[in-house]
């Protein structure tokens, strides 16, 4: 297993947010974490990379327990994180944003250069000198993914990559994620949008109120409409 999460519990101050979350991701797999707004998807990701102050359980990445490591160490082991709210450095140019993400190449992970990323996201190549704050939402979404890829991760957590994007851009995004998968990257993506997740994922988990309610293949999910209706329908 590439990433194993065992009985993860997370808290914000006195509030208990995640309850015994179990997730596992195989090497080269694309796994979707589905759930409604506020179900705990982002908190799961933030807990994995150590951005939540208090968490319990075991998180094993590439065979090593990373539960209590500081964020930058977790990321440097090859676990990339793309936040939902993008968090582009608006005062930095596209090139500089990529520079912040840069980490040395590692074995067992695709190696990215700015040039290679400009082929993956052609829009970015045309605006290398533009400030992050002067880009559209879709362009920022591409930049935030490219920035994380500059760290040459072997697994990426993508938090709602399709959120707020125009349909045409969503399609481009799906293609980019498939291209990343073809490079050998393991991917966990959180989504509210089942259609988008179906296009690219191998397996899926459903989270609701901080608990995992379903885990299985996309096909199994498609064959159980009652689960979809219970946890995903709006």
């Amino acid at each position: 297993m590439k990433l194993e999460i065992h009985k993860l519990n997370s808290y914000y101050g006195p509030a208990h947010i995640l309850f015994d979350v179990d997730i596992s991701v195989g090497t080269g797999e694309v796994v979707a974490l589905l759930g409604r707004n506020g179900a705990g998807k982002s908190t799961t990701f933030r807990s994995i990379v150590g951005l939540v102050a208090r968490r319990e359980g075991r998180i094993v990445f590439d065979g090593e327990d990373i539960t209590n490591r500081p964020t930058h160490e977790i990321v440097r082991r090859g676990l990339g994180y793309v936040p939902e709210d993008r968090r582009i450095f608006t005062e930095l140019t596209v090139e500089e944003n990529l520079m912040v993400g840069a980490q040395p190449a590692r074995d067992g992970a695709p190696c990215w250069t700015p040039e290679k990323l400009y082929t993956l996201f052609p829009n970015l190549g045309e605006m290398r000198g533009r400030l992050g704050g002067r880009m559209s939402g879709g362009e920022q979404q591409m930049l935030t993914i490219a920035r994380t890829l500059m760290g040459n991760p072997s697994l990426v957590l993508l938090d709602e990559p399709s959120e707020g994007l125009a349909p045409k851009i969503v399609e481009e995004m799906a293609n980019a994620i498939l291209a990343m998968k073809n490079e050998g990257l393991s991917i966990v993506l959180s989504e509210q949008n089942l259609h988008f997740a179906r296009l690219i994922s191998d397996r899926a988990y459903i989270i609701e109120s901080g608990r995992i309610r379903f885990g299985g293949t996309i096909r199994e999910l498609e064959e159980s409409p009652e689960i979809r209706d219970a946890y995903l329908a709006v």
Partner: peptide, 22 residues
């Protein structure tokens, strides 16, 4: 690169850490 990291951290230091910078 150090300077770019500093400017990035000026804006959002948690994000800089989430990109693997100590």
């Amino acid at each position: 690169r150090w300077g770019v990291l500093v400017r990035a951290a000026t804006q959002d230091r948690d994000m800089v850490a989430a990109l693997g910078v100590n």
